[in-house]
Design a protein around this nucleic acid. Sequence first.
DNA 1: CGGATCGAC
DNA 2: CTATGTCGATCCG
Length: 791
Amino acid sequence: MDSEDEEDSYPEDEKWTDALEPGPDDVPAQVNDGSSVPGQAGTSGSHQGGQAKGHVSRMELNTNKAGMDGLDKEKINKIIMEASLGSRYYENEQKKDQQVNERIKKILAAKSKLMNNEVAAAQVKVDKMVKELERTRDLSRTIVHIDMDMFYAAVEMLEKPELREKPMAVGGTHMLSTSNYVARRFGVRAGMPGFIALKLCPNLVMVRPNFDKYRKYSKQVREILEEYDLNFCPMSLDEAYLDFTDHVVKRSTMSEKERTYMESVMNQPEGSVEKNEKKEEEGSEKSGDVTALLSTETAHSGESHDVDLQGGKLLGSISEAGEMGGQEDGVSGGKTHLFGISAEEAVREMRFRIQQKTNLTASAGIAPNCMLAKIASDMNKPNGQYVIKSTREEVMKFISNLPVRKVSGIGKVMEKILSAVGVKSCTELYENRAMLYKLFAPISFNHFLKISLGLGSTYVGRDGERKSVSTERTFGGKSRPEDLFRICEELCESLAQDVEKNGLKGRTLTLKLKTVTFEVRNRSQSFQNGICSFKDMHTAARDLLQTEIRACRPHPLALRLMGVRLSSLLSEEEIQQQQKQGSLISFFKKTQLKSTKSPPKTDNETNKTTVEDESCQKMESEMNKDNHFEQKSESLSSSNSPPKDSCKEENTNPLSREQIDEGSVEEDPSEGFTCESEAEVPRPSDNVDETEAESLSENQRYLCPVCNVEKPYNSLEEFNQHVDICLNKGEISTILHKQAKAGGQTSNVSQARSSAPMKRPSTSSSRSNKRMKTGRKRQYSTLDKFFAKNS
DNA sequence: CGGATCGAC
DNA sequence: CTATGTCGATCCG
Ligand SMILES: Nc1ncnc2c1ncn2[C@H]1C[C@H](O)[C@@H](COP(=O)(O)OP(=O)(O)OP(=O)(O)O)O1
Ligand SMILES: [Mg+2]
Ligand SMILES: [Mg+2]
Ligand SMILES: [Mg+2]
């Protein structure tokens, strides 16, 4: 019974490309090599840390995804490079790559300084940790990770079956969110811009996303998942963790009838369209597997959990529906399928039901913990499943040659870093544990150690509360302050809606900026009391933006993206609490306001009659979310052993939230709007005209980006003042924030701000208890790094 | 706390 | 020409 864990092997060497693609250049770039075992990291030894220059590893294709084995990376990367060279994006990636390289250099330096006795001492400590971890190893749970195949693409193909055989991707020329497996053969994958994908695969069909549909199908799938684990944990629209332990127990008492499901009659009216020839061999292979698994065999086998170990695909998979012709004929009507009582059979059943219900396929991994289940679900990815048996031996066997990159939470950079210190596989992770202990921060090391032992969370729990809300937008380069401020305002409006809809409040507002050179900056401000209104958030965001614009001068701040995020969200209790205090204060404040009088404010602020602050605490109890379920009240004393194993996923990336899926991968806007504003950087003009008196050496000419007038100023500050005036004629952002005491003990130093010159906090009435301001004063230097290039 | 980075989908 | 959006975690100063 033991022997092999795997099943559902996946066509290792597909060559379904022949008659499909016209041009010879369109032939998927793949190399021979039929290896597709769990994976094998190059045997240690050789460090390839030092990389040849002109080799921006971060630009290379990630083949770390199902359906992308055996590609001709060289050929693909060459195309990618040619398409990218010289772009601002590329330049920035190059910069980041260098930073990573320096980081590696430091680590290597630290490594070389390690003394033998240090390492030996570390070894002792680490081995104690290992012992402790080993002591708490729990192999008693049966964890399942299920993940829909090429989810968005699959949904799109439902309505356009003719796309099944063609390379297609979801997204637009700017960005793709996923691709089908045909396209993956060309190197086309999620996160790749469409225009590059087109170079890799000229016949690629790009389909715009439709998130409502994805949500709809996701919901349907979840209805099934729920039947196997009420507490299943969705990680995104298309995947989830489930604890099958209880279900398997219950399953042994279920009658055959309860484990029998009917195969829907319909299914793919199209089946195979024109070029139906395809590969007969491949088809028959699959058909064979299918028959072996489904119906008859299993049906008679009763519940023998051994028989069901037969490898093979569940169903011919809708993508191969054509080949099923023979069978369909025979049985035509509703074929029934009996599933066994083992976990694998249960999972197979679950996948079968999903496919019957939605015509979408899913893949799954079964293992004793989340980390392993996640990896396993990718093993036989397109429409398959994989089991890692619950014995220490099997786990270690699986882990042994597994490239660390396969582990969720270890990405491109960490892979590179580890590789530089001689660690590529999980065994090497274990073998080098003492060194890693010395080189990495405790949390990271802990994570590594657990991975190296094949350990992971055995708890599948509901998401905790959301920790931040944000919205951001990419637009063509814009640099005119009025444009930037308008975008900022729109973003805040959008954010305010989200915040209100979810009844949230947060203490930190962050403005995110991405320059036209792809450099990202975050600027945040914290408050003692949570904020949630458009006005409060906008005020803060606008201030931060203004500061950045100032810091850039005399250059314009040329951006390609802006975003706003509210974090440090308050718990419900805190919101309630604050609401009480707030209402008192706002009452007090209101009366005071009348006398103070507030400037008309040109802006179109949604004149809330209520005091700006509280205006968003509604949160109807309804909520579309299924967010009920208890929250683990006790928990304090740690049921687990190590520090905190918390959520499902391993240490890192307890990704949650299901709306992550909905990136903005070019929706409707037929093309990037971008607009005008060529984001050209004027430069402060160097001709020292020095016409006027003012022989100050400082006398320089600046071009005001607002009024577009260039003239000499005595100082940069004077110029800044001019722009300020020019910018917001009556700005007076003094904004009387409301008084909010709150039990904060740290006195809130109100930093001077707004219109007035700056320096000298004296003026500016913006006292308000907001703005925590840790006594730090950041000095934005006018670093005039990059200029606009080309023309 | 603030900011940068990484990772995932 | 053209390189996403949303969220969580970690690390460092
Ligand atoms: N980088 C991304 N940007 C935006 N959306 C993404 C990105 N990656 C994935 N998505 C969306 C689209 C995917 O269909 C969906 C699920 O992701 P994921 O499961 O990783 O891939 P996939 O389901 O498309 O293919 P498969 O699981 O078969 O490898 O999330
Ligand atoms: Mg998927
Ligand atoms: Mg997924
Ligand atoms: Mg990984």
